[in-house]
């Protein structure tokens, strides 16, 4: 048997953190899906060699500080307004790779108008929609995406659909808009899902180079702090409860 010391040598390295991620310690809770998605975006940017050409628009939500973690150019938008800011940046710098990174509160609540119109105009951007069915940053309040009966700090007895409606499945709406060319729903809860999600991210960034219009990637995600479950249990809960409502897979690929 070879000794661990003989294996852990530079020449045997097969995986390490991409340099597009900074060395800053992420402020996210242990096990938060945001970190995994950040890593995948960073890896795709490195592999495509577009670090100098990529501009991210960060949201309001837990990922407000995303600009501390990906070593690219960034703008930070007012709550929900990332697609409007991305529109401006993309029109000023049409050769750049512009993306928004938004939570479900940001994109599907306060920012519903901005995202619908940007996608309808077919802005040549990538949209990352991190759907954890809750307002994570502010303490786990109900979002439009919260599941029926799901307890949150503002629906302690579970979401009552009689008064608050059904979960807003906004990605299905987005897929109907002619401005979008690629609309997919992914997750990052297993190694296989992570690999698949990375392929989707690569395709979306390549679409920008081909000026195809809006590529939209929903990532069904966990917020273990807001859900009051541990990270491993959160992934299990997500598969069991989120996937039936937010079904993983491609909705549109033109």
């Amino acid at each position: 048997m070879s000794d661990i010391k003989d294996i852990i040598k530079e020449e045997n390295l097969v995986y390490k953190k991409t340099k597009v991620l900074t060395d800053n310690v992420m402020h996210y809770c242990p096990g938060c899906s945001h970190g995994v998605v950040h890593k995948l975006i960073a890896e795709v940017i490195e592999e495509m060699g577009i670090q100098e050409k990529t501009i991210g628009i960060s949201p309001v939500g837990c990922s407000v500080l995303a600009y501390n973690y990906l070593d690219i150019d960034w703008q930070e938008a007012a709550h929900g307004r990332a697609p409007a800011l991305a529109t401006a940046v993309n029109r000023l710098y049409p050769e750049k790779y512009v993306f928004t990174y938004q939570g479900d509160g940001d994109l599907a609540s306060i920012g519903t108008a901005e995202i619908i119109h940007a996608c309808n105009r077919g802005e040549n951007i990538v949209v990352f929609f991190i759907n954890n069915a809750i307002y994570g940053m502010t303490g786990g309040q109900m979002a439009p995406t919260t599941l029926p009966g799901m307890p949150t700090s503002t629906s302690p007895y579970g979401r009552d659909v009689k008064t608050t409606g059904q979960p807003l499945v906004i990605t299905e709406l987005i897929a109907q808009l002619p401005g979008t060319n690629y609309v997919t729903r992914q997750a990052v809860h297993t190694p296989a899902a992570v690999r698949k999600c990375k392929k989707a991210i690569r395709k979306a960034f390549e679409n920008i180079g081909q000026k195809k219009g809006t590529s939209f990637i929903e990532v069904v995600a966990t917020c273990n702090s807001g859900w009051k479950l541990n990270p491993v249990k959160s992934n299990e809960w997500m598969v069991e409860n989120m996937f039936p409502v937010y079904k993983p897979g491609d909705l549109k690929d033109e």
Partner: peptide, 16 residues
Amino acid sequence: AIVCPDSVIEVYKVKA
């Protein structure tokens, strides 16, 4: 390493 949200795992491999 690929599921680690904080990207703190490095992986090494040899053919022994």
